[in-house]
Design a protein around this nucleic acid. Structure first.
Lengths: 193, 193
DNA sequence: TGCATTTCTTACCAAATGACAAGAACTTTT
DNA sequence: AAAAGTTCTTGTCATTTGGTAAGAAATGCA
């Protein structure tokens, strides 16, 4: 039961001694998921934060017509949760579902709060993670504003090729804000280049 | 020199006693800006965080063709800064420019760090602000994924009409991810309804 | 005030995208 | 293995959007 990946991740987010990172990692427990399991269901409060060590997780919402819209892909190494629901303890509006068997390291809200109070490096790490997440989202938003559909697709396949091996093109299409039909056409054109 | 708006904002973000909120607010100083002043220029490190009490601020980036893309509008009551640049002390990629005369309450990075260490409620407030910002951005991203251009325009004018009084339609167009030509057409159609 | 600049609208046309439907390829279930 | 369901592609057509340009309106500046 090696937490090496988690320890490494913590140190990457916030440089600190290995001892300190190990101390933090001790508050996480292993959890295994099968493909299609739900880590979080909309309407419930997100009470755990998961470090994804293995596997792929998809976040999505369901719109009024019943269509799923992919809001996030979470692939190793990253934390998966709904920040708003987790920290404010309000019902979540998103679903987190595994796209493959997954291995995660989990910490509960209560334990995390406890650690925030007692380990300054942990809360600093938490802040850095939030900032990194905000920055990534900001970057993605910028892509929505200034890139074409084709460019967004190319960017995704270049930066996160692993996503394509575990989910449908339909899910990828809604993630970049287009229909599956349109994505299929884009893929066809790119083949001819 | 009343900090009432700031104190109120702090208490709204994180419920706490008025005494505590006042104590926090004491670390902020008043700053006045004229229209078109820069609060932050790209390439420089964001060393201050500004609570906007009066006025409107626009965040934007410049793309390869020299076109400005509006990334944010900041209107009272809200904090304006570049989280990534501010907390990681790296050069910012965005510009923050006032669209009107502004009155802000400012705190420097150093003072904020100091306060984070000495006032638990302050750092908790900081975390809540980050989460709120993340959540708003997430919500906006969701709008990009599942709303039409027209719907995004209508949502913006409904939730933030004040923006329209201080900036050009061109800036609003890039904010919702369309061209000014397209926005003009949308406005025309909405008039006929 | 008068000139220059910017903003906003409108028109035209080409390109991109969506809605819908059909069929092929592939998976899952029974 | 057969049936049912899903995914992906393709075609058609209507709609939306972008690029460009021109002109009107508004604004800023000398």
């Amino acid at each position: 039961m090696s937490k090496q990946a988690l320890i490494q991740f913590i140190q990457n987010v916030l440089p600190m001694s290995e001892e300190k990172a190990k101390q933090i990692s001790q508050h996480f427990n292993e959890k295994l998921f099968l493909k299609n399991d739900y880590i979080l269901k909309e309407g419930t409060v997100c009470r755990e934060s998961h470090f994804i060590e293995e596997g792929l997780v998809r976040g999505y919402v369901v719109d009024l017509d019943g269509n799923e819209v992919t809001t996030h892909f979470y692939s190793n190494p990253i934390f998966a949760n709904d920040f708003l629901s987790f920290f404010k303890r309000v019902p979540s509006k998103i679903n987190l579902q595994t796209l493959s068997n997954c291995k995660t390291w989990v910490i509960s809200y209560d334990e995390l709060q406890q650690c925030f109070h007692t380990i300054p490096e942990f809360r600093e790490f938490g802040r850095m993670m939030l900032i990194n997440s905000y920055s990534r989202l900001q970057n993605r938003m910028l892509g929505m504003l200034q890139l074409s559909s084709e460019q967004r697709y190319e960017k995704l396949i270049k930066t996160h090729p692993e996503i394509f091996q575990n989910t449908s093109l339909k899910n990828i299409a809604t993630y970049i804000g287009i229909t599956d039909t349109s994505l299929s056409r884009i893929r066809k054109e790119l083949l001819h280049k």
